[in-house]
Design a protein around this nucleic acid. Sequence first.
DNA 1: CACTGCTCATGACGTTTGTCATGAGCAGTG
DNA 2: CACTGCTCATGACAAACGTCATGAGCAGTG
Lengths: 219, 219
Amino acid sequence: MTTEGNMTTEGSEGLEGRPLRVLLADDEHLIRGALAALLALEDDLVVVAEAASGPEALAMALAHRPDVAVLDLQMPGADGVKVATSLRSELPGCRTMIVTSHGRPGHLKRALAAGVRGFVPKTVSARRLAEIIRTVHAGNRYVDPELAADAISAGDSPLTVREAEVLELAADGAPVAEIAERASLSQGTVRNYLSSAASKIGAENRHTAVRLARERGWV
Amino acid sequence: MTTEGNMTTEGSEGLEGRPLRVLLADDEHLIRGALAALLALEDDLVVVAEAASGPEALAMALAHRPDVAVLDLQMPGADGVKVATSLRSELPGCRTMIVTSHGRPGHLKRALAAGVRGFVPKTVSARRLAEIIRTVHAGNRYVDPELAADAISAGDSPLTVREAEVLELAADGAPVAEIAERASLSQGTVRNYLSSAASKIGAENRHTAVRLARERGWV
DNA sequence: CACTGCTCATGACGTTTGTCATGAGCAGTG
DNA sequence: CACTGCTCATGACAAACGTCATGAGCAGTG
């Protein structure tokens, strides 16, 4: 029922002698395999490589030189954006796009800065994903409207580099002393950064500040 | 390599006139659709319903009366375990199983207590998932070995009811005063509970305590 | 060059936590 | 019934934390 039949519309991109080569990177076997199966139904697409981690995705990309790399945002080793950044320099001809489960606004900015040309949540249908892959391959960009709206409403991070850095070190609930050591800063400085970051974010303490910054993709 | 070839052993369940009816619930369209496509390849399985949220899963189950409900752990509305609990009473003939992305040990216990008969991470292959669906339908249980090992090593929660309760209220970084108010306790009592919980868990402060308790599924 | 903003630091202050001792009331168990 | 363990509370003390004022060095901008 879910698979509407327009199987007849084959080779819409015209380059029938050279199908669009896709790399699939996602740490969840089940999803990756399922995705590969669905994309295989599109006859102008061919999945030439699969990867389950960031580094593996990179290696596979270099080995198989796909046209488009579809990267999961959260993967062990290196996340999708990091992989995209590496690919940009090491395999410039390869377009990159990110798929994500729970899209935080900030990641979109990071992704676009990394040269990613597509950014979609996993709530899209496979049919649509295939379309977007073609769009991206054609050199255009595609960003999920809802994700884009979120990113705009979340706005830019008001945090300075160090503030964000220190806040991130505070993420696991470590005491100031430990943060100071890990950041090679004095405890006083750490407290100052934490304090200003929290007040900028509008949080009462650093822990809620961390949470809010996470939600807005500022860390 | 992972797919050992026993394709020839078809119809192993014998009931060829009555294929195994499956309900699929996952909030991610892409994954759900892909999964449905993959399961459709197994000729003794048929996906009779799909749902994108907890309540929808419940409604769909009651409407289509599947043999097995495959539920994602994290869904909007009500999580997989809650749906399983409801199904247990409202549709006793339906076996339930949970698939999860990032399996926390504690969920397994909750799931088993809710009468769930299968618990697998999304890292399994579709072939294996199909096998497990059959296993579950046959009345047996299947729990991913790695997840089971994690659950065992994480052990039982050492926290008392109130300790866990207060810890949960502390989850979003709220100050003690707010926790006390929300729990209708004195601030001193809250601090005591927080303190004892943290020391039981082995954390230096309540924030890491919350994090660790979360990881172990104790909250 | 003056100006602004980020970085890093110190010292001081009051508040919030974590920790400990102590005790009362109230289940459930042997 | 004695015992144990959970619940809730209070008070007190030290340590950790948040906040503010202040200042030096250093990059980038107009």
